[in-house]
Protein backbone atom coordinates (compact mmCIF):
# COMPACT_ATOMS: atom_id res chain seq x y z
CA UNK A 1 0.00 0.00 0.00
CA UNK A 2 1.27 3.45 -0.89
CA UNK A 3 2.33 5.40 2.22
CA UNK A 4 0.89 8.80 3.07
CA UNK A 5 3.36 11.61 2.35
CA UNK A 6 3.52 14.70 4.58
CA UNK A 7 1.16 16.58 2.20
CA UNK A 8 -1.54 13.94 2.67
CA UNK A 9 -1.15 14.10 6.45
CA UNK A 10 -1.43 17.90 6.46
CA UNK A 11 -4.57 17.65 4.30
CA UNK A 12 -6.15 15.18 6.75
CA UNK A 13 -5.14 17.32 9.77
CA UNK A 14 -6.63 20.47 8.20
CA UNK A 15 -9.96 18.73 7.51
CA UNK A 16 -10.00 17.17 11.00
CA UNK A 17 -9.46 20.60 12.61
CA UNK A 18 -12.27 22.08 10.47
CA UNK A 19 -14.70 19.37 11.59
CA UNK A 20 -13.58 19.71 15.22
CA UNK A 21 -14.11 23.49 15.17
CA UNK A 22 -17.55 23.04 13.59
CA UNK A 23 -18.46 20.52 16.30
CA UNK A 24 -17.37 23.03 18.96
CA UNK A 25 -19.43 25.78 17.38
CA UNK A 26 -22.52 23.58 17.06
CA UNK A 27 -22.39 21.98 20.51
CA UNK A 28 -21.26 24.83 22.72
CA UNK A 29 -22.05 28.49 23.10
CA UNK A 30 -19.04 30.71 22.41
CA UNK A 31 -17.36 30.52 25.76
CA UNK A 32 -13.91 31.96 26.31
CA UNK A 33 -12.49 28.42 26.10
CA UNK A 34 -14.16 27.72 22.73
CA UNK A 35 -12.94 31.06 21.32
CA UNK A 36 -9.36 30.40 22.43
CA UNK A 37 -9.44 26.84 21.07
CA UNK A 38 -10.82 28.03 17.71
CA UNK A 39 -8.24 30.86 17.54
CA UNK A 40 -5.30 28.54 18.30
CA UNK A 41 -6.40 25.85 15.82
CA UNK A 42 -7.01 28.57 13.21
CA UNK A 43 -3.47 29.84 13.73
CA UNK A 44 -2.14 26.31 13.32
CA UNK A 45 -4.17 25.76 10.10
CA UNK A 46 -2.83 29.00 8.65
CA UNK A 47 0.77 28.11 9.48
CA UNK A 48 0.41 24.64 7.89
CA UNK A 49 -0.86 26.17 4.63
CA UNK A 50 1.80 28.93 4.67
CA UNK A 51 4.71 26.60 5.43
CA UNK A 52 3.79 23.43 3.56
CA UNK A 53 1.27 24.24 0.82
CA UNK A 54 2.61 27.72 -0.07
CA UNK A 55 6.10 26.32 0.61
CA UNK A 56 7.31 29.42 2.45
CA UNK A 57 9.05 27.38 5.16
CA UNK A 58 12.33 27.36 3.26
CA UNK A 59 11.63 30.37 1.03
CA UNK A 60 11.74 34.14 1.56
CA UNK A 61 11.84 34.84 5.32
CA UNK A 62 10.20 38.28 5.01
CA UNK A 63 7.21 36.95 3.10
CA UNK A 64 6.91 34.08 5.57
CA UNK A 65 7.02 36.54 8.47
CA UNK A 66 4.30 38.75 6.94
CA UNK A 67 2.05 35.77 6.21
CA UNK A 68 2.54 34.31 9.67
CA UNK A 69 1.94 37.70 11.28
CA UNK A 70 -1.47 37.81 9.58
CA UNK A 71 -2.32 34.48 11.21
CA UNK A 72 -1.23 35.75 14.61
CA UNK A 73 -3.03 39.11 14.50
CA UNK A 74 -6.50 37.91 13.47
CA UNK A 75 -6.67 34.83 15.75
CA UNK A 76 -5.49 37.17 18.55
CA UNK A 77 -8.44 39.44 17.70
CA UNK A 78 -10.77 36.44 18.09
CA UNK A 79 -9.38 35.97 21.59
CA UNK A 80 -9.91 39.71 22.20
CA UNK A 81 -13.65 39.28 21.42
CA UNK A 82 -13.95 37.36 24.71
CA UNK A 83 -13.86 40.77 26.38
CA UNK A 84 -16.62 42.27 24.17
Amino acid sequence: MKKFSSLEWFWVILIAITLFNTFLGEQFASTAFVSILVAVTLMYKGIIVIDHFMELKHANKNLRFLMRLYFIIFPAMIIATIFF
Binding site: T22, G25, V38, L42, F71, F74, I78
Partner: peptide, 9 residues
Protein backbone atom coordinates in the same frame (compact mmCIF):
# COMPACT_ATOMS: atom_id res chain seq x y z
CA UNK B 1 -10.23 32.86 8.47
CA UNK B 2 -13.72 33.63 7.16
CA UNK B 3 -15.24 30.25 8.06
CA UNK B 4 -14.89 30.38 11.89
CA UNK B 5 -15.74 34.10 12.03
CA UNK B 6 -19.05 33.70 10.21
CA UNK B 7 -20.13 30.10 10.81
CA UNK B 8 -18.58 28.93 14.10
CA UNK B 9 -18.07 31.73 16.63
Amino acid sequence: LIFPLLYVL
